[in-house]
Computed example of a mutant assay.
Amino acid sequence: MTLEINCCPNCGSEEVSRNGQTRHHKQHYKCRECGRQFVLNPAWKPITKQQKELISRMLLERISQAGIARVLQVSEDTVQRYVNSQAAAVKKQVEVTPKQKKRLSVQMDELWSFVDSKGNQQWVWLALDAQTREIVGVHIGERSAVSAQALWNSMPPVYRQCAVIYTDHWSAYDSVLPSKRHRSVDKDSGFTSYIERFNCTIRQRVSRLVRKSLAFSKKLENHIAAIWRFVHHYNANLQL
């Protein structure tokens, strides 16, 4: 049976025939010219470029993916697919302003988080330039010397060569950082105040890091990408 009232959305041909029903009991059609299968007035529609830009901006605020879906009036699956597609594209390397080889000051700390369940702990290790307030090192992993080494390796060479590093008394730092430039201090000393303040900032801005939240990550890749996305946004806005 050929339907004269319907045209193929792919090639515009009117040579269209019925082709069963979808799982939602909507009439399925097939184009005899190009083979395209389609339904009339589909419920699912691709998100627009403007919606993608809005999603990217809202992901940098304390808004859950379910909240984004409600605001934009799209499905949660649509938002999740976009987040998944963007996760792989996020650059996982710090971008900071060039520094001369001179005495630099860095503050380090680790931030607790989890993926899927609180038994799957993922510590966010951060290094911050005390002068410029830039995040100069990031690693997400277990709370061990291996992660401390990964944080050290993530920093630009000029910091590894010149910086004096202030940390708390966590033993993992002692086994990794150069002893002559490592200062282990108490929190009330003030020498780690900037990185501790940033920990509060990132918890307030990234909903996945809120301690008691339903917006936690279910995939490690998306968790890591969300943190790196905010770090890039934070550093870029410091330079404006």
Rank of each mutant, 00 (worst) to 15 (best):
Met1Asp: 15
Met1Pro: 08
Ile5Gln: 08
Asn6Glu: 15
Cys8Lys: 01
Gly12Asp: 03
Glu14Ser: 09
Glu15Asp: 15
Val16Tyr: 02
Ser17Gly: 08
Gly20Met: 06
Cys31Phe: 06
Arg32Ser: 14
Cys34Thr: 02
Cys34His: 04
Gly35Phe: 07
Phe38Trp: 02
Phe38Glu: 06
Leu40Lys: 02
Leu40Gln: 12
Leu40Ile: 15
Pro42Arg: 11
Ala43Asn: 15
Lys45Pro: 04
Pro46Val: 10
Lys49Ala: 15
Gln50Tyr: 09
Gln51His: 03
Gln51Met: 10
Glu53Val: 13
Leu54Lys: 07
Ile55Leu: 08
Arg57Cys: 15
Leu60Ser: 04
Ser64Gln: 05
Gln65Arg: 10
Ala66Lys: 06
Gly67Val: 04
Ile68Leu: 11
Ile68Cys: 03
Ile68His: 00
Ala69Arg: 05
Leu72Gln: 06
Leu72Cys: 09
Val83Gly: 02
Asn84Gln: 13
Gln86Ser: 06
Ala87Tyr: 02
Ala88Ile: 07
Ala88Gly: 13
Val90Glu: 00
Lys91Leu: 13
Glu95Thr: 04
Pro98Trp: 08
Lys99Trp: 00
Lys99Tyr: 01
Gln100Phe: 08
Lys101Trp: 13
Lys102Gln: 14
Arg103Phe: 15
Gln107Ala: 06
Glu110Cys: 00
Glu110Ala: 04
Leu111Cys: 12
Trp112Glu: 12
Phe114Pro: 04
Phe114Trp: 10
Phe114His: 09
Val115Lys: 04
Asp116Ala: 13
Asp116Leu: 10
Ser117Gly: 01
Lys118Glu: 03
Lys118Leu: 09
Gly119Cys: 14
Asn120Pro: 02
Gln121Cys: 15
Gln121His: 12
Gln121Lys: 14
Trp123Arg: 00
Trp123Asp: 05
Val124Arg: 00
Trp125Thr: 02
Ile135Trp: 01
Gly137Asp: 01
Gly137Cys: 03
Val138Gln: 04
His139Gln: 02
Glu142Asn: 15
Glu142Tyr: 14
Arg143Gln: 09
Arg143Cys: 05
Ala150Asn: 08
Asn153Thr: 10
Asn153Val: 08
Ser154Gly: 09
Pro156Lys: 01
Pro157Leu: 05
Pro157Asn: 09
Tyr159Val: 07
Tyr159Cys: 10
Cys162Glu: 06
Ala163Ile: 03
Ile165Gly: 03
Thr167Ser: 06
His169Phe: 11
Tyr173Arg: 04
Arg181Gln: 14
His182Glu: 08
Arg183Ile: 08
Ser184Tyr: 02
Val185Thr: 12
Lys187Asp: 05
Lys187Gly: 00
Ser189Lys: 08
Ser193Met: 12
Phe198His: 13
Asn199Ser: 10
Cys200Ala: 14
Thr201Asn: 10
Ile202Asp: 03
Arg203Trp: 09
Gln204Asn: 08
Gln204Gly: 12
Gln204Pro: 07
Arg205Pro: 00
Arg205Gln: 07
Val206Ala: 07
Val206Thr: 06
Leu209Lys: 03
Lys212Pro: 02
Lys212Leu: 11
Ser213Trp: 04
Leu214Asn: 13
Leu214Ile: 12
Phe216Trp: 07
Phe216Pro: 01
Ser217Asp: 03
Ser217Ile: 00
Lys218Ile: 03
Lys219Tyr: 11
Glu221Arg: 14
Glu221Ala: 15
Ala226Gly: 05
Ile227Asn: 03
Ile227Asp: 06
Trp228Gly: 01
Val231Asn: 00
Val231Thr: 04
Val231Arg: 04
Ala236Gly: 09
Asn237Pro: 05
Leu238Tyr: 00
Leu238Phe: 01
Leu238Gln: 01
Gln239Pro: 00
Leu240Asn: 13
Leu240Lys: 13
